[in-house]
Amino acid sequence: MRARTLVHGQAAPGPPERLIKGVVFAVLSAAVVIPFLTVFSTSVAPTEQISDAGGLVLFPRGLDLTAYEAIFSGGVVTRALAVSVFVTGVGTALSLFVSCLLAYAISRKHFVLGRPVLLVVLIGMLFSPGIIPVYLVVKQTGLLDSLWALIIPTMVSGFNVIVLRSFFQGIPDELTESATIDGASEWEIFSRIVMPLSKAVLAVIGLFYAVGYWNSFFSALLYIDDATKWPMQLVLRTYVVNDAAMGQADIGSERMPPQTSLQMAILVVSMVPILIIYPFLQRHFAKGVLTGAVKG
């Protein structure tokens, strides 16, 4: 029997092993891709085909954009999309800024309150204050029915702060010490040395924050009464959970598509921004996660 080819000192997998891996990979890929394809296909499928299929369609027989015309003509989805973009953009920027400042402070060895602040962050990860106390705080600070209520209460994540702290501690001390000798302030060290070296972990943490803000609907359900300030996910929940009659009345299109088509179209619109952003951050993702989580 001929010996297997060695790859990195180990025997290369044979044809049966490669076949099994290929089948498993194909099954997992199909499990991820088929739901997305079904959602998009149903949103553009003709009304008759949706009715014949009794709901979801995998391969549309034509292209019908009535659902997209309907949801964008009334302004409900457009307004909600603008709200979500604002909350996600501003919230992610503020969260990154505050989290980086906090993580950098507790990563510095000479910071006297480093351990007490770190203990507070860890306690915040383990124990949640609950819905009612947070609601009372939001109410007392005058944030009810304000878009800032969707940003400020969830601005800092303890987990993300710990990941950033671990990464900042991995930066060689020689860099910061030499900058201190040259007369650089802490802010200059933070902004000119630490931040440029942290692009990978910042991309990962920024993606975590952005996805959290974009997908959040429960905060809006608690704090926002004005329907004109609803984010995209709360509008989507209204169409999926409730009877779409109210949503269709708000849309006001002459020829209304089926409820299922409307739901799938709104779902597609809610997924597109994250799907567009992720490829630009994907190359930093694995590096940022490993660098922020492993010290050696």
Rank of each mutant, 00 (worst) to 15 (best):
F159G: 05
S253P: 00
V32R: 08
Y68S: 05
I277T: 11
L143K: 02
A45M: 11
Y239R: 03
P196W: 00
S107A: 09
S95K: 08
V161C: 13
Y278H: 10
V268M: 06
V134A: 12
A53C: 11
K199W: 11
V211E: 11
S43Q: 01
V33F: 06
A45S: 15
I131V: 14
F168W: 03
V77R: 00
I34H: 00
A82T: 14
G292Y: 06
V241T: 13
Y223C: 02
A293V: 15
H284M: 07
Y68L: 07
I34M: 01
A149Q: 09
A210R: 03
F280G: 09
V163F: 11
A45I: 12
V269F: 05
V120S: 13
S191Y: 00
G288W: 14
P273R: 10
V241K: 03
L197Q: 11
K295C: 07
P13D: 07
A200K: 02
M264K: 04
T260C: 03
I162F: 01
W148T: 10
V87M: 01
V272A: 05
Y135N: 06
L290E: 10
L94H: 06
A203E: 02
M246G: 14
A249S: 15
P46N: 02
D226H: 02
Y223F: 08
A12I: 09
S41Y: 01
E188P: 03
G130Y: 05
L65N: 04
G288F: 14
S29T: 14
G142F: 11
F190D: 04
A149E: 06
A105E: 07
P129K: 03
T47Y: 06
